[in-house]
Design a binder for these strands. Sequence first.
RNA 1: GCGGAAGUAGCUCAGUCGGUUAGAGCGCUGGAUUGUGGCUCCGGAGGCCGUGGGUUCGAGUCCCAUCUUUCGCCCCA
Length: 435
Amino acid sequence: MALSTQPYKGARDFYPEDKRLQKYMFRIMRESVEKFGYEEYDAPILESLDLYLAKTGEEIVNEQTYTFEDRGGRKVAIRPEMTPTVSRMVAARRQELAYPLRWYSIPNLWRYERPQHGRLREHWQLNVDIFGSEDVQAELEIIRVADSILKTFGATHDMYTIKLNSRKLMDFIMNEYLGLNQVQSYTLSKLIDRMHKMPAEAFDAEVEALFSPSQREAGAHNKLHGLLKTKHLDALPERLRELPSVVALQKLLTQLKAMHIPNVIFDITVMRGFDYYTDIVFEVNDTHPENNRSMFGGGRYDGLVGLFGVEPVPTVGFGMGDVTLQNFLEGHDLMPKLRSETDVFAIIVGDVAEKAEKVIDDLREMGLHIAVDFTGRKIDKQIKTASKKDVHYALFIGERELKDEQYVLRNLQTGVEERHSASRIVSIVKDYRED
RNA sequence: GCGGAAGUAGCUCAGUCGGUUAGAGCGCUGGAUUGUGGCUCCGGAGGCCGUGGGUUCGAGUCCCAUCUUUCGCCCCA
């Protein structure tokens, strides 16, 4: 039986053209967040399993994490997300860091689950966090950063919606306003989280089953129903509007709109999967009709750093996955045509290899990326090879060129050929590379 | 983890009722008087029909299992 050439289930090989796309996406991400002063960090892909047992949703640890025992008997996990890791790093140097911290990373993460559209077992996820600010200005900045990234990819505001909500508001609604106990609240929040994926009747039935007789008596169901239909903060009952979280949400919405981000809305059904969110959460949705799903999101999690036994550090952050981002870019026709990192494919004509290599080395010295075809094949084959590699220019070097030191530079896109000196070639190619 | 669909050449696929040496297009490769790709013409390579069992005189075709891909569910990015 032959060895399989397939990559591991749910993981991808990155051939040069795939890697080109990944590098492009990471470059835009880095440039966007660094504009706001975020600094890159990194960490090992392996973590102690304990790190994930304390928090996170239970299912992620039990069923979706790759775990194993190392040779020393330690329980090890391949990181399924970056937030616990970065919280651990911050906690380790809690006292000496200069707050507010603006950190980002693009780690690869692993989750053991069934691969399907937009979800693989290994993915890369831009993580952007701001540590050390309780002020809603932190949320404002984080959302602006997320918006700015999408804009840099060429997206316009009609392509996505930013939905905001608050966990504190939801907790208040469930505990105080509806009078639910802890178990009921937890179940209901998970139910609201997937409310849009189930028929209204099924949702109603599950909600009804959740309430106790006395709660039903008190009209809990109707109250909840009314709330879930709320599209604006002003439409909330007075008691809820006075909550600090709601005031903060209102401020956020107003400021974002003032900053020319009109596609933000309040959405009371946004919950986010992780249990560690403590207040404001947000979610970015693709508006493309065929891919109308949550692309990524984030929120405030003030409790995580404190789990390591140090004073808590208030934190706001989000994670943006490469697979969902790619789907978004493809859906909105935002994928760039990427060329090779190689600027020039040199074609040596005749028996002049030694002299030609000298010229090529000079060009490399002046900063060009040049691959040389030393096969001596027919010229048409060599041009075809260059073209297939998505190299932009072919450079012919033969007797004639070497004699007068004028080389034939061919633009493989247009087919236009010109004779130039080496230094002129360098500036032409560099000019092209710049844009 | 639970359902549905699909696996034939590198890619996209055809293959009748189970019947001889398994097909096309594209791609790859060589050539059309040796310094120019994409067009045209001619030649060539390339298949354990995903894998393992079973039924049958005979299986790409029917049955079972398994792996992979894919769509949905759970969950989430």
